[in-house]
Every structure is written in C-alpha cells, then in structure tokens.
C-alpha cells in the first residue's frame, strides 16, 4: 500500500481504511503542520489544527474527485480553510506573538544531529524573526507567501487553493516580499529613508 498514489489512497480512505489514512498522514504531516504553524505563528494551534485537518479528511474523503484537481491542492485548501476559520473564530486577529517553545524543539535538527547552544540560539533567533515577520503580514498575503516559499506550489495552484485569481495571487506575493524585505532588513529601510 505504501507505493500507492495519493489518489488511490484517498479512495481507500473513503472506504474507511485507516492504514491508507496513516500513509497519507506520514506523507503530508510535516507540510501541513508547518503550513499551519507558519500561518498562525503558534505551534499549539498547529498541533490542534493538524488533527482537525486529518479528521476532516477522513470524513470528507468521499468528496475528493481527482478530475477536479490534485490531492495536494485539495488538502491544502482544506488546511487553509480550517486555519482561516479557527483564526477568525478565536479572534486571534492573525497577530500572534511567537511562543517561547522554539528553543525546546530545536535541540535536535532535522538530521538528528544535536546542535550547540550557539547554533540553537542563532536558529531560534532566525526562526523567531521570520515567523514574527510573517505574522505581521495580512493573512491573505501571508498564505500566498507560505504556499509559494515553503510548499512550492505554482501560482496557478495557489490561486485554486486560496480562491483568488492568479494575477491577484502574484500581486499579493510581490507585496508580501516587499514588506518582508523591509521587516527582515531594517538597515536597508533606514538607508532608504
């Protein structure tokens, strides 16, 4: 079953096959979790929403239709809608403060190699500044930046996921990059002023 395509697995999930769900989860766990984390700026919220996303996937697997689009886009649309709803429901106003949890889970990097405290600090600082910068963007701009930069979706795919026209998506991306450039390179801003 491991070798099956996403579409094939989704048909099995629709038939309530938990094994298929587990394989899909393992394939997309990191992408979905990091997408929500970068969007909300909160690891706790991301933890909560990844569960909701895959639970929703379980219930709505029968609605997936590969003729209407690929699975990745469908999953991102679902994750994005859940995140948007949650954010507006809880009235976070999309302005999170980065939580103090970053250092804790950075003690081991992705390759499983333990990092020195200096490396940890530096990485934590970078992460905090980037996540902070992202949370300062308007949500409709932030989602485009995240989907493009981290999830490597094409602009056309982002347009499908967000429901905005492709031209609008590109304009949002350009605007977001300009804002991030100003936030992440304060010296440059001062020089311009």
């Amino acid at each position: 079953m491991e070798n099956k395509q996403d579409n094939e697995l989704m048909y099995l999930v629709a038939e309530k096959n938990t094994q298929a769900l587990k394989i899909i989860y393992k394939r997309y766990e990191m992408r979905v979790f990091n997408f929500i984390y970068r969007y909300t700026g909160s690891r706790g919220v991301a933890q909560e929403l990844i569960q909701e996303t895959f639970t929703r996937l379980w219930f709505s697997a029968h609605l997936f239709d590969e003729r209407k689009g690929n699975f990745k886009g469908w999953l991102y649309t679902m994750a994005l809608n859940i995140t948007r709803n949650e954010m507006s429901k809880k009235e976070y106003l999309y302005g999170f403060k980065v939580m103090d949890e970053t250092v804790q889970h950075l003690s081991t990097n992705n390759n499983g190699i333990r990092e020195t405290p200096e490396q940890l600090y530096e990485e934590s600082e970078t992460r905090n500044s980037v996540i902070n910068a992202l949370t300062q963007l308007k949500p409709y701009i932030r989602e485009v930046i995240i989907l493009k930069n981290y999830d490597h979706l094409k602009f056309k795919e982002i347009a499908e996921v967000t429901g905005a026209p492709e031209g609008t998506v590109k304009a949002r991306y350009l605007k977001g990059i300009d804002i991030l450039k100003a936030i992440l390179n304060p010296k440059e801003v001062i020089n311009h002023v």
């Binding site: 769900l21 766990e29 990091n34 984390y37 933890q47 970078t126 992440l184």
Partner: peptide, 19 residues
C-alpha cells in the same frame, strides 16, 4: 532568508490521537 527556517515536527503520537 525565509527558507533558512527549518521545519518543526508535530508531537509524537498525533497520528494515534487522530485515528
């Protein structure tokens, strides 16, 4: 700069909690 941020993992056992 945006891509220099490493990914974070969800808690272990999340899949079991979902299932």
């Amino acid at each position: 700069l945006l891509n220099s941020v490493t990914e974070v993992k969800p808690l272990d056992g999340t899949l079991d909690m979902i299932v």
